[in-house]
Write a protein that binds this DNA or RNA. Structure first.
Lengths: 130, 130
DNA sequence: CATGGTGTATTAACCACTTAATACACTATG
DNA sequence: CATAGTGTATTAAGTGGTTAATACACCATG
């Protein structure tokens, strides 16, 4: 659970991103209980309300659910998790393409640069991470 | 010169991006005179100080230069323009790769998605834009 | 039944940052 | 030489948004 938050982006967004990463990389069992807001706040040394903010948004997106007076749980909808993953990638691709298309550069150059950057980060072919 | 600014990002940053695009796509002659701050402000219907803010930052980055009491001019350093272009692409690639590497996805899938998105936007191979 | 932890709601404080107002010296133009 | 436009600096105002404080009802545990 050790992770530093940068000082640039809102903490609650970084929290959401943190959970997204765990979600799409199967680090959660479906329906798994999450630590309480206050517990997480303690671990990250942030305000409980900030955690609540993140939880609210994740609940809004159905990433988690909370029965009254029960700990929040990770969604049991595995299709949703796949969708989160797909949407995330799609959005990243769109943002990327949208920005580079203002540049006069060939497709081959682009993919070569992407490939280079991927391998630079020890990202072997085949999708086995780290 | 018609372009709408979104209401999400700071205007001065969108202005800078606007000039970056013109700069790297050779829509400026080296040393070309730029319209005055107030003129640009009128065209975009924004505050002259906002233009000045953008100009300051572009001057800081040496994209433009301003002799005392003269109109600002586009840099004559063509190598710099190449560097701006390269840096911009490099940063876009880094951001992109950095985000998708939190996802369990193969390199082939990534490049395929990028290729798809590029062609969807009428981006023919070979780098001939639009 | 008391105590401490929980999810949640409301409100306030804060805060970085962008944008705008204003002023000034200078220059070109007539 | 007057007028209008320019680059620039300083300062104020505004603003959207995040974070924090506080409170409340509820529940489990002893």
């Amino acid at each position: 659970m050790r992770r530093q938050f940068n000082q640039r982006d809102p903490i609650y967004l970084q929290l959401i991103d943190y959970f997204r990463e765990k979600l799409v990389s199967n680090q959660f069992k479906p329906g798994e209980e999450l630590p309480s807001r206050r517990e997480i706040a303690r671990q990250f040394n942030i305000n409980p309300n900030t955690v609540q903010r993140a939880f609210s948004e994740m609940e809004e997106m159905s990433w988690i659910y909370t029965e009254p007076h029960r700990p929040s749980r990770v969604t049991q909808n595995t299709e949703l998790i796949q969708k989160i993953k797909k949407d995330f990638v799609r959005r990243a691709v769109e943002t990327f393409v949208s920005s580079i298309q203002t540049i006069d550069i060939s497709y081959e150059e682009v993919t070569e640069l992407v490939e280079k950057e991927l391998s630079k980060r020890n990202y072997p072919n085949g999708g086995i991470k780290k």
